[in-house]
């Protein structure tokens, strides 16, 4: 069922990872990505895997949950791996058929690509698992705030993101319900060609849009009646404050990048 998808979900907790400032976590995620792509050796991957595992352990996120959440993007990973296997040039040809050649370099490249992608996605999921969507948007808003001087609508953007995040689970649940209701009237979403299947989606999409607009209307009314009038003059209950632990974490992030650049850049 649709509602089983855990993509981008937040698991509340009170670990050091949860308590870090969202801006710190955003910066660390960027550090992690940079280091991951800088690492070029097996020991480098082992090092990054160790970094990832310690971060996961510190966040007390269930490793199984994290792995399971990779399922929806498994296809993309496999696709990339297959491309790498067949289309990496190399001299150590292991097998050869028709126009395809499988080389040792291809296999190694594919394995590394798979590792890198999986770790990349697992790392970003760790960010969304340990940071409430609201904190994340607050972090982004705060990072973008200096841009307000050039009339960049940082508050509007952040509000839009947080409302989207609030309503995604609601709309997923609603989609589920509408699908069931149309199935009860004999709708068939599983057979027929592309055109027939696309047409079969109308009984889901039309009610979903109608409902989304109705919700938007009602939400706007509720927000106005709770005195919302844009970002001007607004205060926040939780103001973002960089604490010593954030600076320590950022230093650690910088150390990881430096270590990767110093030690694991080239194949030995």
């Amino acid at each position: 069922m649709l509602r089983d998808i855990t993509l981008g979900q937040y698991f509340p907790g009170n670990t050091i990872v949860h308590r870090l400032d969202p801006r710190t976590k955003l910066a660390l995620t960027v550090c992690y990505m940079v280091a991951l792509f800088a690492a070029r050796t097996w020991s480098g991957y082992a090092f990054m895997l160790a970094v990832l595992i310690s971060a996961v352990a510190a966040s007390r996120i269930n490793g199984k949950t994290l792995l399971k959440s990779l399922k929806p993007i498994l296809f993309i990973i496999i696709f990339t791996v297959v491309l790498n296997v067949f289309f990496t040039a190399g001299d150590d040809v292991l097998a050869h058929f028709w126009i395809f050649k499988i080389t040792k370099q291809g296999l190694v490249g594919a394995a590394q690509m798979m590792l890198r992608l999986t770790m990349l996605i697992a790392g970003t999921f760790l960010l969304t698992y340990t940071t409430s969507p609201l904190a994340l948007t607050d972090g982004i808003e705060s990072i973008l705030k200096p841009l307000a001087k050039i009339h960049f609508p940082a508050h509007v953007l952040a509000m839009m993101m947080s409302i989207a995040l609030r309503f995604i689970p609601t709309l997923i649940e609603e989609t589920d319900k509408i699908m069931s209701a149309q199935k009860a009237r004999g709708a068939d979403f599983e057979s027929g060609g592309l055109v027939k299947r696309a047409k079969a989606l109308l009984p889901i999409l039309v009610p979903l849009f109608v409902s989304a607009f109705r919700r938007a209307d009602e939400l706007a009314e509720a927000m106005e009646s709770r005195c919302y009038r844009g970002g001007e003059g607004r205060t926040r209950m939780k103001t973002l404050v960089m604490r010593p632990r954030d600076w320590v974490a950022l230093a650690a992030g910088a150390a990881v990048i430096s270590a990767v650049y110093a030690l694991f850049r080239r194949l030995p």
Partner: peptide, 20 residues
Amino acid sequence: LREARFRVGLVFQFPEYQLF
């Protein structure tokens, strides 16, 4: 299963949200 869908008609809660 198809036959059952038609012989047992199910109206969900707030069914007006399924009109399209």
